[in-house]
Nucleic acid binder design. Structure first.
Lengths: 143, 143
DNA sequence: CATAAGAGTTAAAGCTACTTGAGCTTCAAG
DNA sequence: CTTGAAGCTCAAGTAGCTTTAACTCTTATG
């Protein structure tokens, strides 16, 4: 049932790379696994599950230290699942804030490109209106 | 016209911090300014304009090395404004890709939070269905 | 004119989350 | 038994600054 996994196999199944796995071990996010005679790491299903959880949290954008918290919630019977919800809520809020920033950025960049098309086709650097606009504080490229 | 600016004044006007300005100088993104007798840096309007341009590019998400390119476009009469447009286009594409990722992330996190609300109110860590879901590969928390 | 606060100076280390490289060993297949 | 892939360790590198330590300079006030 609990087939042995090499670090490479664990990597394939979890979506992490072997160096990343060693790094997680180094920072104490993964336990130190058993070793074979030659020194190679041996993992089991529990490790795969743990690492998958970690990777999913990371994909969710949780920073490592928060992942550490989340992992400890799993292990610790005294702590509540609502902690996860609260962490996820915070994370959701910051994702939304970041998206708002990116939307503004997208709009500005879109204008920049459009202006380049319209006003600067092939013109030389120093005379380009766009570049002047970029250097002017407090307003966007669409003057 | 070209009033002298201290590094702090330059920082206030550009939105950068003094350490960041020194850092830009160190990596050759800003010229080395004149110094007063005591060694303090003295800047002029040209520096403010340049730094503002750099900060705006950074706000646009351009990496430093691309900003270096953009700056050289401004200075170099032989290079075309279309280069700026092309760089901005690439940048726009990667901003959009990032937004797509974030939208998926937002949806998943929203589901996670909602599930926590619905199914796990106050439940203990090890028994929580949500946490099991997070550890299960290949599917989202809404099983 | 003295002094104290605040702003400036340097070089070096720290940060996140890994990735890359060097140099070597072990394992699995043929 | 050979060979090539995969594993090992330790150290350094990455981006883009920020922070720290230990000083020095400028400026406003008494």
């Amino acid at each position: 049932m609990d087939r042995a996994l090499s670090i490479g196999a664990l990597a394939r199944h979890s979506g992490a790379t072997p160096p990343t796995i060693r790094y997680y071990e180094q920072i104490g996010l993964l336990r130190r696994p058993d070793r074979r005679d030659g020194g190679h790491r041996v993992y089991g299903e529990a490790d795969l599950k743990r690492l998958t959880f970690i990777r999913r949290c990371r994909d969710f954008g949780f920073p490592i230290e928060q992942v550490r918290d989340l992992v400890s919630v799993i292990e610790d019977a005294d702590r509540s699942c609502t902690e996860v919800r609260d962490l996820a809520r915070d994370q959701l809020a910051s994702v939304r804030a970041r998206m708002t920033e990116l939307r503004e950025l997208e709009a500005s960049l879109g204008l920049l490109v459009a202006d380049c098309e319209a006003r600067c086709a092939g013109g030389p650097g120093p005379d380009c209106v766009i570049l002047e606009d970029l250097a002017a504080p407090g307003r966007c490229c669409a003057g």
